[in-house]
Amino acid sequence: MSKQFQFKLVLLGESAVGKSSLVLRFVKDQFDDYRESTIGAAFLTQTVTLEDQTMVKFEIWDTAGQERYKSLAPMYYRNANCAVVVYDITQSASLEKARTWIRELQRQADPSIIIALCGNKTDLSARRQVTQEEAKKYAEEEGLMWGETSAKSGEGVSDIFTAIAKKLPLTAAPSSRAGGARGGAPGAARAGVDLNKQSGAQGGPNEACNC
């Protein structure tokens, strides 16, 4: 039987760098040239299977536009196991914004969070403003993962998510829980209560007694 782990992954970065496009490519292998700025972000999951058949399920959070007026709730990155901070390689200002988010994560998020800095839109490399060297050097200084992607062509997208999956601590017991509650220590026994169980409206067949 293969093991499955679940992790919470959050996306951060300036508007229009391609956060939602990256997720769309990763989860549905699609791209949309006229993608609208995100309001109404979906809550998506995608599973990566590693070479040893370990399955890593990402529970992916997009910002839902709350960051726009500096109003992102701390709940968003709290408990996140990994963060992908995206910049647009054709906009050097977007790397500055990425640095701000990384500082915020280092201050507020769990210290063990894995942060990947991601330069998107490599298909537009003719208009490149951010060199690979500059971004890579910064990532090394801060101990971040780094990679470049194109949500449009698909280049590098699965690589960056797979690299994150490999780096996550796959030491806990396999998780049996499916679906959407947010992850703490992945797979660790959750002493918490599950409100969806026993709620008269939808009681499933396997209502465990928590007494």
């Binding site: 309001i39 109404g40 972000a41 979906a42 809550f43 839902a64 536009g65 709350q66 726009r68 007026y69 500096k70 109003s71």
Partner: peptide, 9 residues
């Protein structure tokens, strides 16, 4: 926000 609400703190 997911249903389109705009937030300003």
């Amino acid at each position: 926000a997911i249903y389109g609400g705009t937030y300003m703190l």
